[in-house]
Amino acid sequence: MKKIFILAIIGSLVLNISFAQKEKLFKYPFVNQTEFGVLFGRVKNANYSYYYPSYSSYWPNPTPNGYSLQNVANLSIQTFNGFQVRKKTTVGLTTGFDMYSSSVLVPVALGLRHVIYEKNEQGAKLQAGIDAGYGATFGASKNSYEDVTGGILINPTIGFKFPTRNGSAWLVNFGYKYQYMEVSQNFDESDFYNIASVETKNLNRFQVRLGFQF
């Protein structure tokens, strides 16, 4: 199993679509799933009461006074490339772009797709998937005011696969995406007062993905 896994990773890295035509080269058939998705989430806008005494620059912690929720949506594009190691199971690598409001992250994750239920081979299938890995910041636009570091991402999904006659399939997936992110502010050297500021973000998103498999 381990060997297959390693092979799958290396294979999907090396392989591109032109390679995929020569199916005999590898033992297992190549699978590509490319999907467009939207990440729906909510953020808390806390209603803080600040008390800043005028005679001091010491700011006590603000008092939380309830919060309002705000809906946010982010675009996500991803491609899963892997090998069908069993009839119903595919393993591979997932990458793409997650366009969060603070930064664009590039997920690099191991992915697993498994058909849970099918009435017959030609019919629609119920597919479960999970991607786990790291959301990296390379390629993200940088600014001098803050540094963004990505973090762990977990993305379980469940959805449908509608096979077409030529062996491809349409995909509709619903899932959950957890992404960790850290934003640290950079202060100017002459800034005597501000020493450090780090914002840790645990992003929990509901995901809807539409895509295509061949």
Binding site: V43, Y58, N194, S197, V198
Partner: peptide, 20 residues
Amino acid sequence: AFTSWSCVDDCTQTRTYRAT
């Protein structure tokens, strides 16, 4: 996973600063 999830983001900011 599906039952325990909540889609509300959880973000905190830790600031260190010098105050008088």
